[in-house]
Write a protein that binds this DNA or RNA. Sequence first.
DNA 1: TATTGTTATACTCTATAACTATA
DNA 2: TATAGTTATAGAGTATAACAATA
Lengths: 143, 143
Amino acid sequence: MSTRPKLDAATEAWSLFLGILFDERPPRVPAVAAEFDVSPMALKMLQGLEPGATLPMSALADRLFCDASNVTGMVDRLEARGLLERRDDPGDRRVKLITLTDEGAAVRERVLARLYEPPEAIARLSRADQRALRDLLRRAIGA
Amino acid sequence: MSTRPKLDAATEAWSLFLGILFDERPPRVPAVAAEFDVSPMALKMLQGLEPGATLPMSALADRLFCDASNVTGMVDRLEARGLLERRDDPGDRRVKLITLTDEGAAVRERVLARLYEPPEAIARLSRADQRALRDLLRRAIGA
DNA sequence: TATTGTTATACTCTATAACTATA
DNA sequence: TATAGTTATAGAGTATAACAATA
């Protein structure tokens, strides 16, 4: 007999979502990152950097849940490609403020377009189900 | 003015899911992997290996979308910990069949319990919404 | 003294290529 | 000849620790 307990609805829903993500071939995040020649972490950085926003590198490290020294390298490479730039913080000369360039914002749009392409499992739902799913998730994130 | 096009419902739904995943602190998959002292890829291997199933290593490489040499290392480490074992395939002596041990199946249960814990965004939905979300995703995967 | 960001370094994970043994 | 799995090796990504500049 199975020892697997029944899942409550929230747990099963989340497991199904992760199942859709894990079943993707190729795996979504590494594949899109490779397509744009950036690391998965740099992809996440681009995703979180909204055009016009300026963030200290320490804030990026905090969001990415990684060491600051790692952010230095990621910013180095993206800056060398002209996708973002370091600016001085007038209020604290230790701080570097990171902001997307126009080209960076354009690349980000193309990255997000690929990242957000719905997997087949979502795409084949009826339009009514897709809207219901969207509305549920909007409520989930409190939007 | 923004150049961001309106998203169709499926795309927005998927972007919201990824947003929930990306916003997790610490990031779910690496954190659970670290908790059980395995790599994220080994975590995915455990997730996909159902108790009782036996799979050739080549099939694991195929599912994980990685090189076979990488599977050798992952299986080495998990086998050394007693979580899975290599068996000979009577039909083809080149093949090694991988199967979870009883301990491996037990560890897998604990891994999945952590992996599938719903994020706050999902947990705070009403029970009716959680069930609706589950039902939509069941339909999405064709279950 | 503490903090921001950088550099130097070691470790892990991964793919590539060459190899063994089977088919 | 081709395939399954292994080994050796090099490259990318990461964290740790020591450092410089500034607070």
